[in-house]
Structures are given as C-alpha cells and as structure tokens.
C-alpha cells in the first residue's frame, strides 16, 4: 500500500473485474477502470503555485490546464489557485511531509478516480455530462470542471492507444453512485469494467 493514498478505494467492494479476455473486448468499446488508489495531493491558496514550484513541480500557466510531471504523474491547475498532484508515492509523500508555506492550504483528496476510454466514450459523455469534449484541443491539456450525472467532477480528456479517454475525479462519497451509473451505461454500449493497465 503506497503512503499518502487511500487505504481502500471508495468503490473497492463493487468494482470487480471480469476475466482478462472480457476486459480486452470491453476496452475496445468502452472500458471503465478504478484508479482511486493512486496517491495524490491537493492544495490551494495564494501561495500554492510558488510553494509547488519551490518543490520542483512544473506549474500549468493557464487555469484549468495540466502538465506532466517528470518521473510520472501530473499536476492539474483547478481554477486560479488550486492544484491537484498525482504521481509516484515518493513525490506525493514529499509534498505531504514538507511544511507548507504561508498562503498554502491543504485540500483533502479522497476521490473516487476513474479512467474511461474506448470508441464509444463520446456516447457515454453525451448522456452524462453537459460539456462537449470533442472540440477541445488536447494539445492545450485542458482540465474541465463540471458535473456528471449530477456529481461535481474534474475531467482530463486524452488519447489512449488512439482512442478517446477521460480521467475523472469526484467526491469519494459519490463513488458507488458514479461507478454504478457509468458502468451501467458502459455495459449498454458493449463495454465494461477493466483494469487500468488495459488501456496501455
């Protein structure tokens, strides 16, 4: 169990996986994977950008955009002064253990974090969310804060193996509802639950 990660995923008891061949078939259409156990760190405040920079992290210059982090992971800028960092346990542990400077406030991150992707992704998004992801330019690394089936979420759209994919973070207490609802739709579209590495 990595340090500074959740001890259990909010959907641990329901996110069961079918056998690998079924997962392979599902991921082509629409796979849904639980990534809640990835270590992450949240902070905000007027001093947040400078503090993260002093720790060697790249700072996305635009609000609602993200950057990759050397050694794996990402940093997303949520609005003007809030950040979400995800990555290797050592990086996250360093953030958690370094004293915060003035104007930096911790943000508790107990997200349900999902990865969805496949040829039918757009069909699912159109049923669940009001943002049209298709015109977004992925090269600008957009972060979208919106609501999905009524739950406030942070979404990063990307391409995985040439297929559209989204990473989704939401309040963990909505984990069951979000997982069940999205899985239902994925299954209707010929997809299903998969392990995160299925997308690689």
């Amino acid at each position: 169990m990595p340090a500074n990660a959740l001890a259990v995923s909010p959907v641990a008891d329901i996110a069961t996986l079918p056998d690998p061949s079924a997962q392979k078939a599902a991921v082509a259409k629409l796979g849904i994977a639980d990534q809640s156990l990835t270590p992450r760190h949240g902070c905000k405040g007027p001093g947040a950008a400078a503090w993260l920079e002093s720790l060697g992290l790249p700072i996305p210059p635009q609000p609602n955009s993200w950057l990759p982090v050397d050694g794996g992971g990402l940093i997303a800028r949520l609005g003007f002064t809030e950040f979400l960092v995800e990555g290797p346990a050592t990086l996250i542990a360093r953030l958690a253990n370094t004293p915060r400077s003035a104007g930096v406030y911790p943000v508790l991150r107990q997200d349900v974090a999902l990865l969805l992707g496949g040829a039918k992704l757009d069909e699912l998004l159109r049923q669940t969310c009001n943002v049209n992801f298709r015109p977004l330019d992925l090269a600008t690394r957009p972060v979208v804060l919106t609501s999905m089936v009524g739950v406030g979420v942070t979404v990063i759209p990307e391409l995985r193996n040439g297929q559209p994919a989204v990473r989704i973070w939401g309040d963990g207490s909505y984990g069951h509802y979000l997982w069940e609802t999205l899985l239902d739709i994925a299954v209707e579209l010929g997809g299903g639950a998969v392990a995160p590495h299925s997308f690689n």
Binding site: N64, G79, N130, V131, T146
Partner: peptide, 16 residues
C-alpha cells in the same frame, strides 16, 4: 436549458 457563462469555465447549464 438555461446557460450561464462562468468567466473561467465558460458556458455551462445553470444547474452547475
């Protein structure tokens, strides 16, 4: 659906 334009996040349904 009623659309409200957030100066940061752009046009969104008023339910957001």
């Amino acid at each position: 659906m009623k659309i409200m334009t957030c100066p940061l996040n752009g046009p969104r349904p008023v339910s957001e």
